[in-house]
Design a binder for these strands. Structure first.
Length: 190
DNA sequence: AAAAGGATTAAT
DNA sequence: TTAATCCTTTTA
């Protein structure tokens, strides 16, 4: 099985590598979650990253321990979940952008206000709402409850391309997704 | 002290 | 295409 040392080793690598290899893993919070089908990488050398201008009260968790969560408020409305990575480059993290729902869909539907499978976890804000993520999860250990991470059952065909919703460093191809998945925040093309 | 600007989403 | 919405960070 998967122990804490395995997870720490997995998250020790650079953000793009972790973002790519995270595709196909499963994430559950209190038993609610699914397969990670879309991620994006960010690090402190990256002008699009919250960590680019150094540590602040908001992004502190990004500079904390690897294999912990960084949760931030987006547009004053949504929560977004990241996994802190790269022990050698503080300020690195992977944004979890979409899940293929596998467990607790009823709970997700309650929280989201819709039962349409493709609208439950397809986007970072939607995903956080479906899983009940909020500021209380910021800085928490991903190796401990309520988080649960499981390695992929089999290989995924991973697509790679430019990130979404940013205005700087738009050309860097640090968005990763399961090719052809109907659960992505936006189609994986270009 | 004031203004800008979002790693988004749902509605128009 | 635009509004919603809030609060962190930046600038004056």
């Amino acid at each position: 099985m998967l122990d804490r040392a395995d997870l720490r080793a997995f998250f020790a690598a650079d953000a793009a590598s972790v973002a790519e290899r995270l595709i196909g893993w499963s994430l559950f919070i209190d038993g609610v979650g699914g397969r990670i089908v879309e991620t994006e990488a960010y690090d402190s050398d990256d002008p699009a990253s919250h960590s680019h201008r150094g540590r602040t009260p908001r992004n502190g968790a990004m500079f904390g321990e690897t294999a912990h969560a960084y949760v931030y408020r987006s547009y004053g409305i949504h929560w977004c979940l990241n996994f802190v990575c790269d022990a050698h480059r503080p300020g690195s993290a992977v944004l979890i952008r979409a899940l293929e729902p596998l467990a607790g869909q009823d709970r997700m539907a309650e929280r989201r206000g819709t039962a349409a499978p493709a609208l439950l976890c397809s986007g970072p804000g939607r995903l956080a709402q479906a899983l009940g993520i909020d500021a209380s999860h910021n800085g928490r250990d991903l190796c401990a409850p309520p988080f649960e991470l499981q390695p992929p059952a089999g290989p995924s065909q991973v697509w790679r391309g430019p990130r979404i919703g940013i205005s700087k460093a738009v050309h860097i191809p640090w968005r990763f997704a399961v090719m052809g998945s109907p659960f992505l925040s936006r189609p994986a093309r270009l």
